[in-house]
């Protein structure tokens, strides 16, 4: 049962990093497609396009952050060796990883779509760059809330 707890915690870390990362990759891909389209006609918009394309990448970073948090919590970082976890503690850590895993995945895809729309917007109205950044940043709010939820939940899990 000791190994099951550790496995569940590691599975949670993997899910957080993987799903949020996949979402970010898709989101950046969508925004990148739009950026390439706009830059084909106007290469001078590279700077603005790059900022907007990068926005959906944050969810992947949040997922990685939670994975590090979990690995640190279970003692796999720092060389001290893994702490003993029962299945119940492992499940709690796994559940803590779910908010950023699921919300990160979905929000990155939708943020990518919003970024693509914003990139199209600055193609016609370059002066609206400020507004164009705010729109996809609104989607970011929910990824940040999910990250916060995962962190608070992880901090509440008692191990060792």
């Amino acid at each position: 049962m000791e190994l099951l707890g550790l496995s569940l915690a590691l599975f949670g870390a993997a899910v957080a990093a993987a799903l949020a990362g996949i979402g970010s990759a898709i989101g950046i891909g969508i925004a990148g497609g739009a950026a390439a389209g706009v830059m084909t006609e106007d290469p001078n918009k590279f700077g603005s396009c790059l900022i907007l394309q990068a926005l959906p990448g944050t969810q992947g970073i949040y997922g990685l952050l939670i994975a590090f948090f979990v690995l640190s919590k279970i003692g796999l970082l720092g060389g001290a060796g893994a702490v003993a976890l029962n299945w119940n503690q492992g499940l709690q850590i796994f559940a803590s990883c779910l908010p950023i895993a699921v919300v990160g995945w979905y929000s990155a895809i939708w943020q990518g779509k919003t970024s693509a729309a914003s990139i199209q917007m600055i193609s016609k109205k370059p002066e609206a760059m400020g507004k164009a950044v705010i729109l996809p940043a609104m989607v970011e709010t929910y990824a940040v809330l999910a990250l916060l939820t995962s962190i608070l939940m992880l901090m509440g899990v008692q191990v060792g």
Binding site: G33, A35, T40, E41
Partner: peptide, 17 residues
């Protein structure tokens, strides 16, 4: 197939209308 690239490029072309 995705039209994100296509539509973005058309938005750029619209500037020349």
């Amino acid at each position: 197939m995705s039209y994100v690239y296509t539509v973005a490029r058309i938005r750029g072309m619209e500037n020349h209308l």
